[in-house]
Write a protein that binds this DNA or RNA. Structure first.
Lengths: 149, 149
DNA sequence: AGCGACATGACAATCATTCTCACAACGGAT
DNA sequence: ATCCGTTGTGAGAATGATTGTCATGTCGCT
């Protein structure tokens, strides 16, 4: 059974004050800066346990570093993350879900699961981007359930 | 400036004989087993260079290990990977692409990019056999349970 | 053949994450 | 409130993939 320890409480508290995806190391540093005395291994252990129980979302960054975030939606959802500031927006896309599942079934795959994360530059960081600003917006088959934080 | 070296040739040759995603370490071992003498660092450097130039696809496994594969489609596409045997099917989903881009734009995000990979059990590992190759079965039931990780 | 830039290899260095294990603290029972 | 078995913690070592270093090799060109 899961016990309630000072450390676990502190970790959850720290996470609840975070809005972006943060690595275990960053969370640990943040806590240390806040005066909390928690071992790094403990942070790792708890983040893992929390994500396993679905209370936390994990994102594997390109360099292999895992990042954690406490999401508003505890169910299945995806993220739109700003490459610059890490600002995150959760969204649901039921049509995408079923479309992917359908494709998988067409190929004989079962017990389907998937990873889908979208990266981009949020409004605050759409400065002078590179190149002639690609705009690949075509078929706005709008029906998203975007839910801003 | 890209020179043709024995090592690079051997790496490409090894990759062309591979159909599944393999880690740099696995590829290195495979080559050693085949009698090739190539340094591990060289394998890493070349795999990176090749993926950067788009000749190779990279998949970041859940544990952070990068896996490489030479894909038939050199353009943008996604993968359907068997969790058991690694069997991989490439697929395109233009509708998903535009839908995701649309969602991102609705939230003010630009320069959008995304990662989308589907995992499941291929016909050979689901316990029951499915049609030969094509099987347009549409079972609306989906027991997918988000397995955060 | 000669040359200079790029590539390679062996190994050290990084870095995130996990393991180890002695010790501390939770919490249900007493 | 106290006991006590179980679970959690902390410090540091260990692991393992990936990257950096740098002396040496060799490719492509003249």
């Amino acid at each position: 059974m899961q016990r309630n320890t000072r450390q676990r409480t502190a970790i959850l508290e720290t996470l609840s004050r975070q809005d972006d995806f943060r690595s275990a190391q960053q969370i640990h540093e943040q806590m240390k800066a806040d005066g909390e005395t928690v071992g790094l291994a403990t942070v790792y252990r708890n983040l893992q346990a929390l994500s396993r129980s679905g209370r936390l979302d994990v994102l594997v960054a390109g360099d292999g570093e895992s990042q954690y975030r406490q999401c508003a939606d505890t169910g299945h959802h995806h993220h739109l993350v700003c490459r610059e500031c890490g600002r995150t927006v959760e969204f649901l896309a039921p049509k995408l879900e079923s479309a992917m599942t359908a494709i998988a079934h067409e190929h004989g795959f079962t017990d389907v699961d998937h990873t889908l994360e979208v990266f981009g530059l949020c409004a605050d960081h759409t400065g002078q981007s590179v190149g002639p600003d690609e705009d690949l917006d075509d078929d706005p088959d709008d029906e998203d359930e975007g839910r801003a934080r």
